[in-house]
């Protein structure tokens, strides 16, 4: 099993009711989309937010949601930015 840390910001945090959490997923299928699926199951209100969010793994933007994850990776959910 792979433990993955998840950071949630702004509307993602509001939808989940928390800003950070840890998930344990099977190491064999440890991919970004598996984590997102788990998040949607746990927090249904996150689904529409995830649809418009960018995903970062260990501080790097992830283009494909099939990207693999390693144990202790940090996955961050970035809803559309609104600084300024």
């Amino acid at each position: 099993m792979a433990r993955v840390r998840v950071l949630l910001f702004a509307t993602a945090r509001e939808a989940a009711g928390r800003g950070r959490l840890e998930l344990t997923i099977p190491e064999a299928g440890a991919r970004v989309d598996a984590v997102l699926e788990e998040l949607r199951d746990r927090y249904p209100r996150l689904a529409p937010v995830l649809a418009t969010s960018r995903i970062f793994v260990n501080g790097e933007s992830v283009a494909r949601r099939t990207a693999p994850l390693a144990p202790d990776d940090e996955l961050a959910i970035h809803p559309p930015y609104s600084g300024g």
Partner: peptide, 14 residues
């Protein structure tokens, strides 16, 4: 700079 900051930098307001 301000246009790109608003579009590309992970900052959020509530």
């Amino acid at each position: 700079l301000i246009e790109r900051l608003k579009a590309e930098v992970p900052i959020w307001k509530t």
